[in-house]
Simulated assay, not measured.
Amino acid sequence: MMPEMDGFSVLDRIRENGEMQEISVIMLTSRSREEDIVRALEAGADDFLAKPFNKSELYGRVQQTLQ
């Protein structure tokens, strides 16, 4: 867990900032409930990976997001 705000708050700030709106965001989190995944994607995340994940899956998702 992050110390001062959670990833959803960070994502909200990124998406609210006009200069940062085009940044791709892949949420990496220990939260894996369906509600968390839907919340992240509705908030503007480009993808979502629940921990634990393997390097090859992360690499593939980063490649897909950047295309």
Rank of each mutant, 00 (worst) to 15 (best):
R31E: 14
M20Q: 13
E42D: 15
E19Y: 04
G44H: 03
D12F: 05
G44F: 01
S32C: 12
M2A: 00
S9K: 10
K55R: 11
R39H: 15
K55H: 01
R33Q: 15
L66Y: 02
Q64F: 03
R61N: 09
L41W: 03
P3D: 05
R13D: 10
G18H: 07
Q63R: 07
I26G: 12
G7Q: 07
E34R: 07
I23E: 04
L11Q: 04
E16H: 14
T65R: 12
E35T: 14
G60Q: 09
K55Y: 01
A50M: 14
R39S: 11
E57K: 08
F8G: 12
Q63F: 01
M1T: 12
K51C: 01
Q63G: 03
S30N: 13
V10D: 03
P52M: 06
F8N: 15
E35Q: 14
A50I: 09
R39M: 09
S32H: 13
E19S: 14
R39N: 14
Y59P: 00
R31D: 02
R13W: 07
E35C: 02
A50W: 05
A40F: 04
K51L: 11
I37L: 15
M1I: 08
P3F: 05
I14F: 00
R15K: 15
F8R: 14
S9T: 11
S30V: 12
E16V: 02
R13G: 11
V25N: 08
V38A: 12
E57L: 08
I23F: 03
S9G: 12
S32M: 05
S56C: 00
D47G: 14
G7P: 02
L66M: 12
F8V: 10
R13P: 01
F53T: 08
V38F: 06
T29D: 11
D12N: 15
D47M: 11
E22Y: 01
D47F: 02
M27A: 08
D6G: 13
G44I: 04
V25L: 08
M5S: 06
G18Q: 07
Q67G: 09
L66E: 03
F53E: 12
N17G: 08
V10Q: 07
L66T: 03
L11Y: 04
L28P: 12
D12P: 00
L58Y: 05
S56N: 00
D47L: 06
D6L: 04
D46K: 13
I37D: 03
D6P: 02
L41R: 15
A43W: 00
A40L: 09
M27R: 13
A50S: 15
S30K: 03
V38P: 00
K55T: 06
E22D: 14
K51Y: 01
M27V: 15
D47W: 06
G60M: 11
S30H: 01
E34H: 01
M20L: 14
D46G: 14
E57T: 09
E57R: 04
D46A: 05
E34A: 07
E35K: 15
I26Q: 12
R31A: 14
I26R: 13
E57A: 05
E57Q: 10
M1A: 11
Q67A: 02
L66A: 01
N54T: 00
M27S: 07
M2L: 10
